[in-house]
Nucleic acid binder design. Sequence first.
DNA 1: GAATATTTGCAAATGATTTGCAAAAGAGAT
DNA 2: ATCTCTTTTGCAAATCATTTGCAAATATTC
Lengths: 148, 148
Amino acid sequence: MESLCDAAKVLKSNGVRVTPARVVLLEALHSRRGPFTAQELHANLPARSADLVTVYRFLARLVKASLAREIVGSDGVAYYEMACAHNPVHPHFECLSCGRLFCLPLFREEDSARVLDYGTGHRVESVSVVFRGTCAACLANELEEGKK
Amino acid sequence: MESLCDAAKVLKSNGVRVTPARVVLLEALHSRRGPFTAQELHANLPARSADLVTVYRFLARLVKASLAREIVGSDGVAYYEMACAHNPVHPHFECLSCGRLFCLPLFREEDSARVLDYGTGHRVESVSVVFRGTCAACLANELEEGKK
DNA sequence: GAATATTTGCAAATGATTTGCAAAAGAGAT
DNA sequence: ATCTCTTTTGCAAATCATTTGCAAATATTC
């Protein structure tokens, strides 16, 4: 597995041309903290630097090259995040109250092994662990509301 | 958490009327082995017994009542499965080769606790663990193909 | 620079899921 | 049974993220 930090190189060596649009996209990707949707990414691009379709296509390539991961939210919308060595596989939380999808702490090595174990017998390419419910922030808000 | 096996009762006690369409749906649900989509369920219903929209609406209710669980596939399509005591939470495998989504073995009590632990601090309503890759059956087929 | 392969943008298609709404069907009281 | 009130249903139409078709623009190679 390669690091997204070398994405340009990796892509090039896979016959993927590094065009202006893709450079912009790679930069935008690096400045992102949590998981994002194709549309969010596109919205934060310098105006007219890349079409939404291009964003979709590029993200699909990254995922295929294992340079990015895809997390599907409960409403079927796809979120993406980088898959570089600095950002190993981890669980996510989807808040049904505020709608945010964010990262949870990394799996401990040991737990990771235990989870992976359930896929024995198949060729596992990715594992997605998504918690759903109400996030801590929204729970706090509920309390606030309750007081009023 | 209630059992889907008593779904009719549970629904009734929640002010949900048990109509002919819903009886048909509950029966169809019980005869299903693995996870299914709304459309699959609808396609296997006696002709003209319930509209596809009704199926969607009913499934949404079951999920809200914790009588069914929803698993979202990588293409954003929702799969459902019963959530009765005889079918506790378990991981799933989505084969990118044949497209099937099926159940993996139950989490051992201990592992379940370890996974749940990562959601600490939030109000967790559901956890979804989905493996993706190539299933054992498709791997076997690949071998077959290779021999030719 | 010509020839070839890849990439891009734009418009249009897809396809699952949702919504609006008026008609049909339960529940309960009379 | 009948009337009233609420829930449910079917149908058509709307949504909306994602995908596709295709011709024009841009790389790469020789």
